[in-house]
Design a protein around this nucleic acid. Sequence first.
RNA 1: GGGCCGUUAGCUCAGUCGGUAGAGCAUCUGACUUUUAAUCAGGUGGUCGUAGGUUCGAUCCCUACACGGCCCA
Length: 498
Amino acid sequence: MTDENHSTEEELIAQRREHLEKLREAGVAYRNDFKRDTLAADIHENHGNSSKEELEEQKVRVAVAGRMMSRRIMGKASFAHVKDMSGQIQIFVRKDDVGEDTYNDFKQFDLGDIIAIKGWVFITKTGELSIHVEELTILVKSLRPLPEKFHGLTDLETRYRQRYLDLMTNDDTRHVFSIRSKTINYIRSYLDGCGFVEVETPMMHPVPGGATARPFKTHHNALDMELYLRIAPELYLKRLVVGGVEKVYEINRSFRNEGLSPRHNPEFSMLEFYQAYADYHDLMDLTEDLLRKLVNHLFGDSKLTYQEQDYDLSKPFVRLTVFDSILEYNPDLTPDDINNLDSIRKTSDKLGVPYEDNFGLGKVQIEIFEKIVESKLQGPAFITAFPKEVSPLARSSDNDPFLTDRFELFIGGREIANGFSELNDPDDQAERFRKQVESKEAGDNEAMHYDADYITALEYGLPPTAGEGIGIDRLVMLLTDSPSIRDVILFPHMRAKE
RNA sequence: GGGCCGUUAGCUCAGUCGGUAGAGCAUCUGACUUUUAAUCAGGUGGUCGUAGGUUCGAUCCCUACACGGCCCA
């Protein structure tokens, strides 16, 4: 050892680099000649119920590798915990068993090192299933000190910027991303089971469409062409339905050039699916069934808790129109207060909901809905009958031309899904695009572009179809009781440091 | 974009009504052959986010900025 045994970060790293140098000299740094045959969780699963005596008798030998997370040296015998992707297992290292040289090597290991063990499974005096080590080696020297072993890493900024440290030390974080993976897998198998076909459509669009949002702009050099990162895959998926792919879905990223918040990341994951010869009622039924089965699949029952609020998905989801929901959550209002532009403007003023002069009745209704009703919708609740003015891609309602055959699903005051019977009348669609372009020219930079190529596709005939988008990130937030979208995205966007 | 809060050792956190900072873990030395937040004894480790200002003196008060969090638009 050096005489200078300090412990600034620099010096901690220097100490570890000295250990690495010794490994390099011995020709065993960064080796890759060890094959493990067992994961930590396998050991717990296979031997967790065995008795001490059974294990002594069987002498089950395992080869395990992982990161050393803790160590307790007691003279000539030591314990450590080794962590792999499945979990942790304790190892017991005794000088008499591994020999003096290996034991001394072991004492030079640092927390965070990636090590390999061969030994037999046993139970310690205090009853912990462990590996009695016979052979031991270091595979990778960790040069930087680990976060504290008991509290783990709690600093949010570091957890997001250096997610690997978060994953290394916080089991909760691993759990969240495991649920995320299982959720996406389950959705895929559910839709596959219903006969849907998974596709990948372009992420770079010459005309951004499928949602009202600001896009990211980029440039293709060879084509010398402006392109936009997609804000939604919708218009391409419907082109596929035109082409005869009658049940189609895509799960992937979309991008919106907007602010960051606990509910918004500039890139986010969506499921979109389209089913020909179905209407929005069919999709509400499908969504209810999918979510109920998903929660059962993940948790074994239909109940979940989000931010201390309980939800039971076994009960039928509420279904309520936008109009009725405004009245329900504003008991002082009468239908006449919100069913014409003059009265709803007065109502908005009274409620303190801002609107602009060019907003029609439908848009003002939605402003009130979003500001006042949404956050109160514990749900699960399908809100239906959205005004045409705010639904430029949805089919007009047969009963009321002011409305569309559209719904959104709310759980915990948050929009989880948005679906509708698709607008397949090309002339109506062209007219709606023109209205959007007018809004854009009037200064609404979220309004849609006119997509002539899409109109052409509709002119060939889109079958009667219903389609829906489900926000994967928000769904996973709900399923993992995560307050922020950053908790369910591995590498959330952050401002560059320095 | 606006408001509020935060930033102290590698990590988790105290603290200073303005007088140059502490603990636990990690690390180092020693003891210890079934520990488990191991234990016991003794050490090391800090530009108190950055830059200015006020002051005899600033980690603390003021201003600006950076990064993060929450709320609002």
